[in-house]
Write a protein that binds this DNA or RNA. Structure first.
Lengths: 226, 226
DNA sequence: TAGATTGTTAATCGATTAACAATC
DNA sequence: TAGATTGTTAATCGATTAACAATC
């Protein structure tokens, strides 16, 4: 019964960043396989679904230990659980959201987060009239209470969905409240202390990448999947 | 007056994919600089804002030609225009949206697209009751009319914001209508012909990446910025 | 057994960085 | 001029791929 504290596992810092991105995709596929009642899969099968080579799938997983059975492949449920453990999403992560505009509202109602082990537990906006209301049973507070509430709830992940000119302020508030990871949907770079992790998602940039490819590239290999 | 058809430029197919991602970030920063009235910048300055080295900024730009002035740096407006030309966003791209749920509605109201040269010109949903309505002045049609409308409007980029189980159908429809690039927000991998470009944005996966970093990584280097 | 498939090593390929002459 | 900064080459570093013994 191999696992992520396998002696053959590579220290996490030495795992290429791209591997972590693909790991999420493997997890997603495994979850669909399980829904369809599939018990086992293989590196070839998983790779074909996602546009990667079988070698790459095996190598990626090998960074974390030995999960497969020669001659058989991988047991879907076992591998899914192993990957969830690597991400820490076998347990629930409470998340805070700042900014209840169009995008913020959509995020509050998005089903996909809870399916992957994340739950937005509190939301904040600067507009007084939103304070005290709820969306999808999630309470909205005035941003003045952000620090107190987030530090009390020991929330470690925050989502920024405010206008660009408020993004740095929102990020600073989150960090002061003890958040360690920030998912930033504002199309602006925020400057944060070195120990804080940031992922930026700029919706227009995603289209830009696509526009470049469509114009200039002939055959797309596997493009960004997450 | 250097430009992207510079003789020193590398063929687009040989440009590393990661470079294109960073190019979008350079463009975004340049636009903010211009708003602030800054006339010139340098590879060091641009790099520091984004967490890249000056060498990397210069090397990235060098794939496309010579845009800088030794001893001076880069003229913001000139470089911005050059990058826009590379992306093709000096002209407007019409875009189609499929799926008017929470996320679709947010995308219809999102200001960021038009700022970067994209415009959602038509939207589609399977629910009869939405057909004929508009959001943000964008007409919503029944998905039965998707092919006719998109091919007539010669739309080349499509956005998928439907539930996972409808994503493959939506993608197929878009491709049949002549779309060449698909931005997919459904948390599922869609299978498409080899000449079609896809970018997948899975909101939960972004949080997963963050969760991994927060748990296992000490000092984040520059993380995904777009 | 034969066929399938793993985990791992070594070889290849690609991307980043350091260094520096050329330029303003 | 001296200081700043580019574009580019060569060296380094990192990631992917091919090959294959081991296993079921």
């Amino acid at each position: 019964m191999p696992f992520s504290d396998d002696p053959s596992a590579t220290p996490f810092e030495q795992v290429p960043k791209a591997v972590i991105g693909r790991l999420s995709l493997y997890l997603r596929e495994l979850q669909y396989m399980l829904k369809r009642g599939e018990k086992t899969t293989s590196s070839t099968h998983l790779g074909r679904l996602l546009g990667f080579s079988d070698t790459q799938v095996r190598k990626d997983l090998a960074y974390f230990g030995q999960f497969g059975y020669p001659g058989i492949g991988y047991r879907c449920e076992e591998l899914m659980n192993a990957i969830k453990t690597i991400f820490g999403t076998h347990q629930r992560w409470p998340v805070a959201l700042v900014g209840i505009g169009n995008l913020g509202r959509a995020l509050l109602r998005y089903k996909g987060f809870s399916q992957q082990g994340f739950e937005i537990v509190s939301a904040f906006d600067i507009r007084e009239e939103l304070a005290g209301t709820t969306i999808n049973e999630i309470s909205i507070y005035h941003v003045d209470f952000l620090q107190k509430i987030i530090s009390k709830q020991q929330i470690k992940l925050g989502i920024i969905a405010v206008p660009s000119n408020a993004a740095q302020f929102a990020a600073d508030q989150l960090v002061e409240a003890g958040v360690l990871g920030v998912l930033n949907f504002a199309p602006v770079t925020v400057a944060l202390p070195p120990h804080i992790h940031t992922v930026g998602v700029d919706l227009a940039i995603e289209l830009e990448q696509l526009a470049f490819s469509v114009q200039h590239l002939q055959t797309p290999e596997a493009e960004t999947g997450g």
